[in-house]
Amino acid sequence: MSSPHSKSAAVAAALTALDEGRTPERPVFREAVRTLLATLAERAPGRSVEVRVPPYGAVQCVAGPRHTRGTPPNVVEMDPATWLELATGRLGWSQAVTEGRVRVSGVRADLSAHLPL
């Protein structure tokens, strides 16, 4: 969590709520997810992979062939709590995929080289 984005109040508040077994308030959860997605897009610029964290956000990232229409061939999707854990290093990529907490499709959909942020 070295980025200024990662240290935002929303990320800290969301992680605290999750640590206490609570669901973060919706606006806090949304801001935390979007902040960390923006950080990923900054650190792994490109448009070959779409990372989706419904219902709060999605970004295209990772260098490679650009996708322009329809469903992207390389998609990563997960719930907001899983995204916060992955982005902050509380959960490893392999573990999340093995446990089915992250759904991936496409040959470029491995984000392990870009996480944690």
Rank of each mutant, 00 (worst) to 15 (best):
E25D: 14
R30W: 02
P72G: 15
W93C: 03
E25F: 06
S112F: 09
A41K: 06
M78K: 02
T68Q: 07
F29Y: 08
N74F: 07
G100C: 09
V104F: 02
R47P: 00
H114E: 12
M1W: 03
L111P: 05
E99F: 03
T68K: 06
G92V: 03
T82L: 08
D110L: 11
E25A: 15
S94W: 07
A13S: 14
R52P: 02
T35M: 00
R30N: 11
F29M: 15
E42G: 05
E77I: 11
A96D: 05
E99M: 08
P24T: 11
S3M: 07
A81R: 03
R47L: 09
V75M: 10
A63S: 15
R52I: 11
R69P: 00
T98V: 12
P54C: 12
A12V: 12
D110V: 09
V53K: 00
P72E: 12
R52F: 03
P54T: 09
L91A: 13
L115T: 02
S6E: 13
D19P: 05
R66C: 06
K7S: 09
G57Y: 01
L18W: 04
T35H: 00
P116N: 11
P45M: 06
V53A: 00
S112L: 07
V107C: 03
P54I: 06
H5N: 05
S2C: 05
R47K: 07
A87K: 01
Q95F: 05
P116F: 13
P55R: 04
P80V: 05
E50Y: 01
L15N: 11
A63F: 08
E25R: 13
S112P: 03
A41R: 13
G64H: 06
S48I: 04
A9D: 13
P80A: 09
T88E: 08
E85L: 14
S3I: 07
V75A: 01
E25Y: 10
R101W: 10
C61N: 06
D79G: 13
A13V: 00
P4C: 05
L15C: 10
S94F: 08
T35F: 00
A96N: 02
R43D: 09
A113W: 06
T82Y: 13
A113K: 10
R43V: 04
Y56L: 04
A63V: 13
H5C: 04
S2D: 14
L91M: 13
L115I: 13
P65V: 14
T35I: 04
A12D: 08
G46I: 06
R26D: 15
R66I: 14
E85I: 05
L37S: 10
T98H: 10
R90K: 12
V59D: 00
E77V: 15
G21D: 13
P80E: 09
R43T: 11
P27E: 01
V102F: 07
T82G: 08
A17K: 04
Q60Y: 09
S112Q: 11
R66S: 15
P72W: 01
G46A: 11
